[in-house]
Design a protein around this nucleic acid. Sequence first.
RNA 1: GUGGCAUUAGCUCAGUUGGUUAGAGCGCCGGAUUGUGAUUCCGGAGGUCGCGGGUUCGAGUCCCGUAUGCCACCCCA
Length: 443
Amino acid sequence: MSEKLIKPQTLKGFRDFLPSAALARERLIDTAKRVYRSYGYAPIDTPALEYTEILLGKGGDESDKQMFRFEDQGGRDVAMRFDLTVPFARFAAQHAQELGLPFKRYHVGTVWRGERPQKGRFREFVQCDFDTIGTDSAASDAETLLVIHDLLVALGIERFSIRVNHRGVLNGLLESLGVRDKSASVLRALDKLAKAGREAVIKEMVEIAGLTSDAAESILRFCARTGPPGEVLSEVATQLDGVEISRLGIQTLRGLFEAADAAGVPASRLRLDLAIARGLDYYTGTIYETFLDDLPAIGSVCSGGRYDNLAGLFTKLPLPGVGASLGVDRLLAAMEELGLVADGATPATVLMTQFEPNRLRDYIAAAARLRGRGIAVEVFPEAKNVGKQFKYADRKGHRLVIVAGSDEFAARTWQIKTLATGEQTTVADTELVDAVSQLLNPG
RNA sequence: GUGGCAUUAGCUCAGUUGGUUAGAGCGCCGGAUUGUGAUUCCGGAGGUCGCGGGUUCGAGUCCCGUAUGCCACCCCA
Protein backbone atom coordinates (compact mmCIF):
# COMPACT_ATOMS: atom_id res chain seq x y z
CA MET A 1 0.00 0.00 0.00
CA SER A 2 1.75 3.11 -1.14
CA GLU A 3 -1.27 5.21 -2.04
CA LYS A 4 -1.13 8.76 -0.91
CA LEU A 5 -3.04 9.36 2.31
CA ILE A 6 -5.95 11.74 2.23
CA LYS A 7 -5.31 14.62 4.56
CA PRO A 8 -7.87 14.44 7.36
CA GLN A 9 -9.31 17.93 7.61
CA THR A 10 -12.55 19.80 8.15
CA LEU A 11 -13.83 22.76 6.18
CA LYS A 12 -13.20 26.33 7.26
CA GLY A 13 -15.55 27.19 10.09
CA PHE A 14 -16.68 23.56 10.51
CA ARG A 15 -15.51 21.58 13.51
CA ASP A 16 -15.24 18.16 15.07
CA PHE A 17 -16.37 17.63 18.63
CA LEU A 18 -14.31 15.37 20.87
CA PRO A 19 -16.13 13.69 23.74
CA SER A 20 -15.44 16.31 26.39
CA ALA A 21 -16.77 19.08 24.14
CA ALA A 22 -19.65 16.98 22.85
CA LEU A 23 -20.65 16.04 26.38
CA ALA A 24 -20.59 19.67 27.46
CA ARG A 25 -22.68 20.61 24.46
CA GLU A 26 -25.24 17.92 25.16
CA ARG A 27 -25.51 18.93 28.79
CA LEU A 28 -26.08 22.50 27.71
CA ILE A 29 -28.78 21.51 25.24
CA ASP A 30 -30.49 19.25 27.76
CA THR A 31 -30.64 22.09 30.24
CA ALA A 32 -32.08 24.45 27.64
CA LYS A 33 -34.75 21.92 26.71
CA ARG A 34 -35.70 21.48 30.34
CA VAL A 35 -36.19 25.23 30.77
CA TYR A 36 -38.23 25.56 27.57
CA ARG A 37 -40.44 22.66 28.53
CA SER A 38 -41.03 24.16 31.94
CA TYR A 39 -42.78 27.04 30.16
CA GLY A 40 -44.78 24.75 27.90
CA TYR A 41 -42.81 25.05 24.69
CA ALA A 42 -43.10 21.85 22.63
CA PRO A 43 -40.37 20.38 20.44
CA ILE A 44 -40.52 20.44 16.66
CA ASP A 45 -38.07 19.78 13.87
CA THR A 46 -37.71 21.00 10.29
CA PRO A 47 -35.39 20.11 7.40
CA ALA A 48 -31.88 21.49 7.14
CA LEU A 49 -32.52 22.22 3.49
CA GLU A 50 -35.29 24.47 2.19
CA TYR A 51 -36.31 25.81 -1.18
CA THR A 52 -34.18 28.89 -1.63
CA GLU A 53 -37.22 31.11 -2.08
CA ILE A 54 -38.32 30.24 1.47
CA LEU A 55 -35.12 31.66 2.93
CA LEU A 56 -34.01 34.29 0.45
CA GLY A 57 -34.60 37.90 1.41
CA LYS A 58 -35.86 37.14 4.91
CA GLY A 59 -32.87 38.04 7.00
CA GLY A 60 -31.50 40.82 4.82
CA ASP A 61 -28.79 41.20 2.21
CA GLU A 62 -26.12 39.88 4.49
CA SER A 63 -27.96 36.61 5.19
CA ASP A 64 -28.57 36.16 1.48
CA LYS A 65 -24.88 36.49 0.74
CA GLN A 66 -23.93 34.05 3.48
CA MET A 67 -26.35 31.32 2.48
CA PHE A 68 -25.02 27.95 1.37
CA ARG A 69 -27.02 27.51 -1.80
CA PHE A 70 -26.95 24.98 -4.62
CA GLU A 71 -28.96 22.99 -7.08
CA ASP A 72 -30.04 19.54 -5.92
CA GLN A 73 -30.06 16.35 -7.97
CA GLY A 74 -33.50 17.20 -9.29
CA GLY A 75 -32.51 20.66 -10.43
CA ARG A 76 -34.24 22.41 -7.51
CA ASP A 77 -32.77 25.65 -6.18
CA VAL A 78 -32.14 24.85 -2.52
CA ALA A 79 -30.35 26.41 0.45
CA MET A 80 -29.27 25.42 3.95
CA ARG A 81 -31.08 27.24 6.72
CA PHE A 82 -29.15 30.17 8.25
CA ASP A 83 -31.40 30.32 11.31
CA LEU A 84 -34.36 28.45 12.79
CA THR A 85 -36.80 31.34 12.80
CA VAL A 86 -37.46 31.66 9.08
CA PRO A 87 -38.06 27.91 8.68
CA PHE A 88 -40.37 28.15 11.69
CA ALA A 89 -42.39 30.89 10.03
CA ARG A 90 -42.80 28.60 7.03
CA PHE A 91 -43.65 25.69 9.32
CA ALA A 92 -46.26 27.71 11.19
CA ALA A 93 -47.83 28.97 7.99
CA GLN A 94 -47.95 25.45 6.60
CA HIS A 95 -49.38 23.78 9.71
CA ALA A 96 -51.27 26.53 11.55
CA GLN A 97 -54.56 24.64 11.12
CA GLU A 98 -53.25 21.51 12.83
CA LEU A 99 -51.33 23.33 15.55
CA GLY A 100 -53.94 25.60 17.04
CA LEU A 101 -52.95 29.06 18.15
CA PRO A 102 -51.17 30.45 19.96
CA PHE A 103 -48.43 27.90 19.45
CA LYS A 104 -45.20 27.63 21.42
CA ARG A 105 -42.31 25.56 20.20
CA TYR A 106 -38.64 24.99 20.83
CA HIS A 107 -36.22 23.75 18.24
CA VAL A 108 -32.61 22.63 18.55
CA GLY A 109 -30.88 22.52 15.23
CA THR A 110 -27.75 23.13 13.22
CA VAL A 111 -27.63 26.21 11.01
CA TRP A 112 -25.10 27.36 8.42
CA ARG A 113 -23.71 30.75 7.46
CA GLY A 114 -20.87 31.20 5.02
CA GLU A 115 -19.13 34.00 6.85
CA ARG A 116 -15.61 34.60 8.07
CA PRO A 117 -14.93 32.51 11.20
CA GLN A 118 -13.63 33.98 14.43
CA LYS A 119 -13.72 32.99 18.06
CA GLY A 120 -17.27 31.99 18.92
CA ARG A 121 -18.21 32.39 15.30
CA PHE A 122 -18.50 29.43 12.99
CA ARG A 123 -19.94 28.44 9.66
CA GLU A 124 -21.82 25.57 11.21
CA PHE A 125 -23.36 26.03 14.62
CA VAL A 126 -26.26 24.96 16.77
CA GLN A 127 -29.07 27.16 17.93
CA CYS A 128 -31.71 26.43 20.55
CA ASP A 129 -34.72 28.53 19.64
CA PHE A 130 -37.99 29.03 21.43
CA ASP A 131 -40.86 31.04 19.99
CA THR A 132 -44.51 31.84 20.48
CA ILE A 133 -46.52 32.40 17.35
CA GLY A 134 -50.11 33.45 16.83
CA THR A 135 -50.41 36.15 19.47
CA ASP A 136 -49.29 39.74 19.67
CA SER A 137 -49.84 39.92 23.41
CA ALA A 138 -47.13 41.71 25.37
CA ALA A 139 -47.37 38.86 27.85
CA SER A 140 -45.47 36.74 25.34
CA ASP A 141 -42.80 39.40 24.97
CA ALA A 142 -42.44 39.37 28.72
CA GLU A 143 -42.35 35.60 28.90
CA THR A 144 -39.59 35.53 26.30
CA LEU A 145 -37.50 37.68 28.58
CA LEU A 146 -38.14 35.41 31.56
CA VAL A 147 -37.17 32.33 29.58
CA ILE A 148 -33.87 33.92 28.52
CA HIS A 149 -33.15 34.74 32.12
CA ASP A 150 -34.04 31.30 33.49
CA LEU A 151 -32.07 29.69 30.72
CA LEU A 152 -28.81 31.40 31.56
CA VAL A 153 -29.26 30.83 35.26
CA ALA A 154 -29.98 27.15 34.64
CA LEU A 155 -26.81 26.92 32.57
CA GLY A 156 -24.83 28.09 35.56
CA ILE A 157 -24.10 31.56 34.19
CA GLU A 158 -24.33 34.09 36.98
CA ARG A 159 -23.02 37.27 35.47
CA PHE A 160 -24.90 38.35 32.36
CA SER A 161 -26.98 41.24 31.08
CA ILE A 162 -30.06 41.06 28.96
CA ARG A 163 -30.46 44.21 26.94
CA VAL A 164 -33.88 45.03 25.62
CA ASN A 165 -35.28 47.60 23.29
CA HIS A 166 -38.22 48.03 20.97
CA ARG A 167 -38.13 48.95 17.32
CA GLY A 168 -41.36 50.87 17.63
CA VAL A 169 -39.72 53.30 20.00
CA LEU A 170 -36.81 53.86 17.68
CA ASN A 171 -38.96 54.20 14.62
CA GLY A 172 -41.23 56.62 16.44
CA LEU A 173 -38.22 58.74 17.26
CA LEU A 174 -37.08 58.72 13.66
CA GLU A 175 -40.58 59.60 12.54
CA SER A 176 -40.73 62.54 14.91
CA LEU A 177 -37.50 63.77 13.35
CA GLY A 178 -38.82 63.20 9.87
CA VAL A 179 -36.12 60.66 8.95
CA ARG A 180 -38.11 57.46 9.14
CA ASP A 181 -37.07 56.65 5.56
CA LYS A 182 -33.45 56.46 6.65
CA SER A 183 -34.25 53.95 9.39
CA ALA A 184 -32.01 51.10 8.25
CA SER A 185 -28.77 53.05 7.90
CA VAL A 186 -29.43 55.17 10.99
CA LEU A 187 -30.10 52.16 13.18
CA ARG A 188 -27.01 50.43 11.83
CA ALA A 189 -24.91 53.41 12.87
CA LEU A 190 -26.64 53.70 16.21
CA ASP A 191 -25.98 50.09 17.04
CA LYS A 192 -22.24 50.77 17.07
CA LEU A 193 -22.53 53.26 19.92
CA ALA A 194 -21.10 51.01 22.62
CA LYS A 195 -18.20 49.90 20.46
CA ALA A 196 -17.30 52.89 18.31
CA GLY A 197 -18.28 55.75 20.56
CA ARG A 198 -20.44 58.79 20.19
CA GLU A 199 -18.33 60.75 17.72
CA ALA A 200 -17.97 57.92 15.27
CA VAL A 201 -21.69 57.22 15.35
CA ILE A 202 -22.61 60.84 14.67
CA LYS A 203 -20.11 60.91 11.85
CA GLU A 204 -21.60 57.82 10.27
CA MET A 205 -25.14 59.13 10.66
CA VAL A 206 -24.24 62.33 8.89
CA GLU A 207 -21.92 60.98 6.22
CA ILE A 208 -23.51 57.67 5.39
CA ALA A 209 -27.12 57.94 6.50
CA GLY A 210 -27.38 61.55 5.39
CA LEU A 211 -28.79 63.08 8.55
CA THR A 212 -28.23 66.64 9.64
CA SER A 213 -25.86 66.80 12.56
CA ASP A 214 -28.71 68.22 14.66
CA ALA A 215 -30.81 65.15 13.97
CA ALA A 216 -27.90 62.84 14.72
CA GLU A 217 -27.23 64.65 17.98
CA SER A 218 -30.79 64.40 19.13
CA ILE A 219 -30.95 60.69 18.32
CA LEU A 220 -27.88 60.12 20.45
CA ARG A 221 -29.22 62.26 23.26
CA PHE A 222 -32.34 60.14 23.16
CA CYS A 223 -30.65 56.76 23.07
CA ALA A 224 -27.79 57.39 25.45
CA ARG A 225 -30.22 57.92 28.33
CA THR A 226 -29.44 55.87 31.37
CA GLY A 227 -31.18 55.41 34.66
CA PRO A 228 -33.97 53.32 36.08
CA PRO A 229 -35.97 51.89 33.18
CA GLY A 230 -39.25 53.24 34.52
CA GLU A 231 -37.96 56.79 34.57
CA VAL A 232 -36.30 56.55 31.19
CA LEU A 233 -39.49 55.18 29.70
CA SER A 234 -41.50 58.04 31.20
CA GLU A 235 -39.13 60.59 29.69
CA VAL A 236 -39.33 58.81 26.37
CA ALA A 237 -43.12 58.74 26.56
CA THR A 238 -43.20 62.45 27.16
CA GLN A 239 -40.84 63.22 24.33
CA LEU A 240 -42.70 60.99 21.86
CA ASP A 241 -46.14 61.90 23.13
CA GLY A 242 -47.88 62.36 19.83
CA VAL A 243 -46.15 59.53 18.02
CA GLU A 244 -48.49 56.61 17.66
CA ILE A 245 -46.02 53.86 16.74
CA SER A 246 -43.97 54.44 19.87
CA ARG A 247 -46.85 54.10 22.27
CA LEU A 248 -47.15 50.33 21.98
CA GLY A 249 -43.39 49.91 22.23
CA ILE A 250 -43.15 51.91 25.41
CA GLN A 251 -46.06 50.02 26.90
CA THR A 252 -44.55 46.66 25.97
CA LEU A 253 -41.19 47.59 27.48
CA ARG A 254 -42.92 48.66 30.69
CA GLY A 255 -44.61 45.27 30.75
CA LEU A 256 -41.24 43.57 30.36
CA PHE A 257 -39.77 45.24 33.40
CA GLU A 258 -42.89 44.63 35.46
CA ALA A 259 -42.87 40.94 34.57
CA ALA A 260 -39.19 40.67 35.40
CA ASP A 261 -39.84 42.26 38.74
CA ALA A 262 -42.78 39.97 39.44
CA ALA A 263 -40.74 36.91 38.55
CA GLY A 264 -37.88 37.98 40.79
CA VAL A 265 -35.35 38.70 38.06
CA PRO A 266 -32.56 40.81 39.57
CA ALA A 267 -32.65 44.29 38.06
CA SER A 268 -28.89 44.16 37.57
CA ARG A 269 -29.30 41.53 34.86
CA LEU A 270 -31.71 43.57 32.82
CA ARG A 271 -31.02 46.74 30.91
CA LEU A 272 -33.07 49.02 28.78
CA ASP A 273 -30.73 49.92 25.96
CA LEU A 274 -32.32 52.30 23.48
CA ALA A 275 -29.29 51.99 21.22
CA ILE A 276 -29.52 48.33 20.32
CA ALA A 277 -31.26 48.09 17.04
CA ARG A 278 -29.96 45.14 15.23
CA GLY A 279 -31.21 41.71 14.81
CA LEU A 280 -32.27 40.49 11.45
CA ASP A 281 -34.47 42.51 9.15
CA TYR A 282 -37.61 40.71 10.17
CA TYR A 283 -37.79 42.09 13.72
CA THR A 284 -40.66 44.52 14.23
CA GLY A 285 -41.00 45.02 17.98
CA THR A 286 -39.14 43.95 21.08
CA ILE A 287 -35.45 43.14 20.71
CA TYR A 288 -33.35 41.08 23.11
CA GLU A 289 -29.62 40.60 23.32
CA THR A 290 -27.70 38.83 26.04
CA PHE A 291 -24.07 39.46 26.89
CA LEU A 292 -21.79 37.72 29.34
CA ASP A 293 -20.40 40.24 31.79
CA ASP A 294 -17.09 38.38 31.87
CA LEU A 295 -16.70 38.07 28.11
CA PRO A 296 -18.79 40.66 26.30
CA ALA A 297 -16.47 40.59 23.29
CA ILE A 298 -17.74 37.23 22.17
CA GLY A 299 -21.05 38.86 21.30
CA SER A 300 -24.61 38.06 22.13
CA VAL A 301 -25.20 34.49 23.26
CA CYS A 302 -28.97 34.70 23.22
CA SER A 303 -30.84 37.09 20.98
CA GLY A 304 -34.30 37.48 19.64
CA GLY A 305 -37.28 39.68 19.26
CA ARG A 306 -40.76 40.10 17.90
CA TYR A 307 -41.44 39.53 14.22
CA ASP A 308 -45.04 40.26 13.38
CA ASN A 309 -44.87 40.10 9.60
CA LEU A 310 -42.48 37.25 8.86
CA ALA A 311 -45.07 34.49 8.48
CA GLY A 312 -47.14 36.89 6.40
CA LEU A 313 -44.80 36.07 3.54
CA PHE A 314 -46.15 32.52 3.56
CA THR A 315 -49.80 32.87 4.57
CA LYS A 316 -52.62 35.37 4.82
CA LEU A 317 -53.33 34.20 8.36
CA PRO A 318 -52.08 36.69 10.92
CA LEU A 319 -49.19 34.93 12.65
CA PRO A 320 -47.25 37.40 14.78
CA GLY A 321 -44.33 35.81 16.59
CA VAL A 322 -41.83 36.45 19.35
CA GLY A 323 -38.94 34.39 20.60
CA ALA A 324 -35.20 34.09 20.96
CA SER A 325 -32.30 31.90 20.10
CA LEU A 326 -29.58 30.51 22.31
CA GLY A 327 -26.24 30.30 20.47
CA VAL A 328 -25.09 26.97 21.82
CA ASP A 329 -21.68 26.92 20.17
CA ARG A 330 -20.90 30.53 20.92
CA LEU A 331 -21.87 30.12 24.55
CA LEU A 332 -19.82 26.95 24.74
CA ALA A 333 -16.81 28.72 23.29
CA ALA A 334 -17.25 31.46 25.87
CA MET A 335 -17.63 29.01 28.74
CA GLU A 336 -14.53 27.19 27.59
CA GLU A 337 -12.63 30.47 27.55
CA LEU A 338 -13.89 31.26 31.04
CA GLY A 339 -12.98 27.80 32.34
CA LEU A 340 -16.59 26.88 33.04
CA VAL A 341 -16.55 23.64 31.05
CA ALA A 342 -15.82 20.55 33.08
CA ASP A 343 -13.59 18.10 31.33
CA GLY A 344 -14.26 14.40 31.40
CA ALA A 345 -14.59 12.26 28.34
CA THR A 346 -17.12 9.71 29.48
CA PRO A 347 -20.75 9.77 30.51
CA ALA A 348 -20.14 6.74 32.73
CA THR A 349 -19.54 7.39 36.41
CA VAL A 350 -18.35 3.89 37.23
CA LEU A 351 -15.72 1.64 35.69
CA MET A 352 -16.08 -2.06 36.33
CA THR A 353 -12.62 -3.55 35.89
CA GLN A 354 -12.17 -6.93 34.33
CA PHE A 355 -9.71 -8.86 36.42
CA GLU A 356 -10.49 -12.54 36.03
CA PRO A 357 -11.45 -13.18 32.41
CA ASN A 358 -13.36 -16.33 33.34
CA ARG A 359 -15.55 -14.23 35.63
CA LEU A 360 -16.79 -11.95 32.88
CA ARG A 361 -20.39 -12.97 33.48
CA ASP A 362 -20.16 -11.80 37.09
CA TYR A 363 -18.83 -8.40 36.03
CA ILE A 364 -21.57 -8.09 33.43
CA ALA A 365 -24.25 -9.14 35.90
CA ALA A 366 -23.10 -6.63 38.52
CA ALA A 367 -22.91 -3.85 35.94
CA ALA A 368 -26.44 -4.67 34.83
CA ARG A 369 -27.66 -4.40 38.41
CA LEU A 370 -26.07 -0.97 38.72
CA ARG A 371 -27.60 0.21 35.47
CA GLY A 372 -30.93 -0.97 36.76
CA ARG A 373 -30.56 1.72 39.40
CA GLY A 374 -29.80 4.33 36.75
CA ILE A 375 -26.04 4.31 37.27
CA ALA A 376 -23.93 4.55 34.10
CA VAL A 377 -21.35 1.76 34.22
CA GLU A 378 -18.69 0.79 31.75
CA VAL A 379 -17.16 -2.70 31.86
CA PHE A 380 -13.54 -2.64 30.71
CA PRO A 381 -13.34 -4.80 27.61
CA GLU A 382 -10.03 -6.55 28.29
CA ALA A 383 -8.55 -8.28 31.30
CA LYS A 384 -5.48 -6.05 31.18
CA ASN A 385 -3.52 -5.45 34.32
CA VAL A 386 -5.51 -3.45 36.79
CA GLY A 387 -3.13 -0.51 36.79
CA LYS A 388 -3.95 0.11 33.14
CA GLN A 389 -7.62 -0.06 33.88
CA PHE A 390 -7.32 2.45 36.71
CA LYS A 391 -5.37 4.73 34.45
CA TYR A 392 -8.06 4.48 31.84
CA ALA A 393 -10.70 5.45 34.40
CA ASP A 394 -8.62 8.33 35.67
CA ARG A 395 -8.15 9.71 32.21
CA LYS A 396 -11.73 9.31 31.09
CA GLY A 397 -13.17 10.76 34.26
CA HIS A 398 -15.00 7.87 35.91
CA ARG A 399 -15.61 8.61 39.57
CA LEU A 400 -15.58 5.08 40.95
CA VAL A 401 -13.67 1.96 40.01
CA ILE A 402 -14.90 -1.48 41.04
CA VAL A 403 -12.50 -4.41 41.34
CA ALA A 404 -13.04 -8.07 42.13
CA GLY A 405 -10.53 -10.90 41.88
CA SER A 406 -10.40 -14.38 43.32
CA ASP A 407 -10.31 -13.17 46.94
CA GLU A 408 -13.41 -11.06 46.51
CA PHE A 409 -15.28 -13.73 44.62
CA ALA A 410 -14.46 -16.24 47.36
CA ALA A 411 -15.80 -13.82 49.96
CA ARG A 412 -18.71 -12.62 47.80
CA THR A 413 -17.52 -9.02 48.01
CA TRP A 414 -16.45 -6.12 45.79
CA GLN A 415 -13.81 -3.43 46.18
CA ILE A 416 -14.96 0.09 45.35
CA LYS A 417 -12.40 2.85 44.96
CA THR A 418 -13.25 6.55 44.82
CA LEU A 419 -10.66 8.02 42.46
CA ALA A 420 -10.83 11.58 43.70
CA THR A 421 -9.97 10.66 47.28
CA GLY A 422 -8.20 7.36 46.83
CA GLU A 423 -10.45 5.81 49.44
CA GLN A 424 -11.34 2.21 48.95
CA THR A 425 -13.98 0.08 50.65
CA THR A 426 -15.04 -3.54 50.55
CA VAL A 427 -18.74 -4.27 50.33
CA ALA A 428 -20.79 -7.42 50.26
CA ASP A 429 -22.22 -8.42 46.93
CA THR A 430 -25.74 -7.80 48.21
CA GLU A 431 -24.77 -4.25 49.20
CA LEU A 432 -23.06 -3.31 45.94
CA VAL A 433 -25.77 -1.23 44.35
CA ASP A 434 -26.62 0.68 47.52
CA ALA A 435 -22.98 1.32 48.31
CA VAL A 436 -22.18 2.66 44.84
CA SER A 437 -25.25 4.80 44.79
CA GLN A 438 -24.35 6.15 48.24
CA LEU A 439 -20.79 6.95 47.15
CA LEU A 440 -22.02 8.78 44.05
CA ASN A 441 -24.69 10.78 45.87
CA PRO A 442 -23.74 11.12 49.52
CA GLY A 443 -26.64 12.30 51.63
C1' G B 1 -16.44 40.46 1.24
C1' U B 2 -11.90 44.16 3.03
C1' G B 3 -7.39 44.71 5.98
C1' G B 4 -3.65 42.83 9.74
C1' C B 5 -1.03 38.83 12.58
C1' A B 6 0.13 33.76 12.85
C1' U B 7 1.12 28.39 11.24
C1' U B 8 7.55 23.96 13.76
C1' A B 9 5.67 16.60 17.44
C1' G B 10 -1.13 14.93 19.71
C1' C B 11 -1.05 20.07 22.76
C1' U B 12 1.70 24.74 24.28
C1' C B 13 5.93 26.74 22.31
C1' A B 14 11.90 27.50 21.55
C1' G B 15 14.90 27.51 17.10
C1' U B 16 20.96 32.86 16.62
C1' U B 17 22.76 37.59 10.59
C1' G B 18 20.06 31.65 5.86
C1' G B 19 24.88 26.91 7.35
C1' U B 20 25.62 19.47 9.10
C1' U B 21 21.71 14.64 12.09
C1' A B 22 15.17 20.50 14.24
C1' G B 23 14.60 20.92 20.42
C1' A B 24 11.83 21.47 25.34
C1' G B 25 7.62 20.86 28.58
C1' C B 26 3.12 18.40 28.77
C1' G B 27 0.54 14.28 26.63
C1' C B 28 0.84 9.23 24.44
C1' C B 29 3.00 4.05 24.48
C1' G B 30 6.07 0.48 27.24
C1' G B 31 8.71 -0.96 31.75
C1' A B 32 9.90 -0.60 37.34
C1' U B 33 4.63 -2.88 39.35
C1' U B 34 -0.41 -9.84 35.23
C1' G B 35 -4.22 -6.74 42.64
C1' U B 36 -4.75 -0.19 42.14
C1' G B 37 -4.96 5.58 38.77
C1' A B 38 -3.55 10.73 39.64
C1' U B 39 2.54 11.28 42.57
C1' U B 40 8.14 8.92 41.53
C1' C B 41 12.03 6.56 38.35
C1' C B 42 13.69 4.47 33.48
C1' G B 43 12.92 3.79 28.31
C1' G B 44 10.31 4.47 23.53
C1' A B 45 7.41 6.17 19.51
C1' G B 46 5.99 10.52 17.13
C1' G B 47 8.06 16.15 12.71
C1' U B 48 7.51 15.83 4.09
C1' C B 49 8.89 22.63 9.72
C1' G B 50 0.51 23.85 6.75
C1' C B 51 0.73 23.15 1.24
C1' G B 52 2.81 24.80 -3.71
C1' G B 53 6.35 27.59 -6.23
C1' G B 54 10.70 31.01 -6.26
C1' U B 55 15.67 33.20 -4.65
C1' U B 56 20.33 30.71 -3.04
C1' C B 57 26.04 26.50 -3.26
C1' G B 58 22.51 25.83 0.88
C1' A B 59 15.69 27.73 3.27
C1' G B 60 12.16 26.01 9.44
C1' U B 61 14.59 31.04 8.61
C1' C B 62 14.06 35.40 2.72
C1' C B 63 10.11 36.35 -1.48
C1' C B 64 5.26 35.11 -3.99
C1' G B 65 0.82 32.31 -4.06
C1' U B 66 -2.61 29.27 -1.42
C1' A B 67 -5.11 26.79 2.83
C1' U B 68 -6.32 27.10 7.86
C1' G B 69 -6.60 29.77 12.66
C1' C B 70 -6.92 34.36 15.21
C1' C B 71 -7.78 39.88 15.32
C1' A B 72 -10.11 44.45 13.39
C1' C B 73 -14.08 45.88 9.95
C1' C B 74 -18.96 44.06 8.08
C1' C B 75 -22.50 41.38 10.20
C1' C B 76 -24.13 38.04 13.81
C1' A B 77 -25.62 32.91 17.73
